[in-house]
């Protein structure tokens, strides 16, 4: 008698767990691997482009953004604050943006990036396993992708997840 009820409870439990996980967050197979080889020219009006060798030697954040992306607008102030603190270098990969739009974005809203790469056809982003903007990667000093945040970075994500990870990576590299 109790068996069907138990079975139902079990299934309901599994489904409840399933409801908690967000199907939009797809785990990346690139975590723990070296960043893909790439070499991007700078966004229009900027001088420093971004390539895989630029990501060696120091822990850094890499943010994939576009001027047409609404969530990027939401996370932009967080990055502006980060760049003022100078706690960790932040690089940008500008995904499938019109050069003028990207330049206007950085000019009017501020440029938090140390280096920017203009990924006009989105191929480099595909090599990074990007499937939507914004995405933000934490890259170790040896060029290993340590973490990927999908969606807009909030102040909470920055101070509770990304920055502590940056600290851990720095300590790990020093030890």
């Amino acid at each position: 008698m109790a068996l069907p009820a138990l079975g139902f409870a079990g299934l309901a439990g599994v489904f409840a767990l399933g409801l908690r996980s967000d199907p939009k967050l797809i785990p990346s197979p690139l975590i723990g691997l070296k960043v893909p080889k790439f070499d991007l020219p700078p966004v229009k009006g900027k001088t420093l482009g971004l390539s895989s060798t630029n990501l060696l030697g120091e822990v850094s954040l890499v943010n994939v953004f576009a001027s047409w992306c609404v969530a990027c607008r939401a996370e932009h102030p967080i990055f502006m604050r980060l760049s003022q603190d100078k706690s960790v270098p932040l690089h940008g990969i500008n995904y499938k943006d019109a050069p003028d739009d990207a330049a206007k974005w950085l000019d009017t809203m501020g440029d938090p990036y140390t280096r920017t790469g203009a990924d006009l056809d989105g191929r480099v982003a595909i090599d990074w396993g990007v499937y939507g903007v914004p995405e933000t990667f934490v890259v170790g000093a040896d060029g290993t992708i340590a973490y990927k945040h999908i969606g807009a970075v909030t102040g909470e994500v920055m101070s509770n997840t990304l920055l502590p990870l940056v600290e851990r990576l720095r300590k790990g590299a020093a030890a």
Binding site: I26, P27, S28, P29, L30, I126, D127, W128, G129, Y131
Partner: peptide, 8 residues
């Protein structure tokens, strides 16, 4: 493709 996006 799997190398970039996983088995998903």
């Amino acid at each position: 493709v799997v190398a970039r996006y996983g088995n998903y």
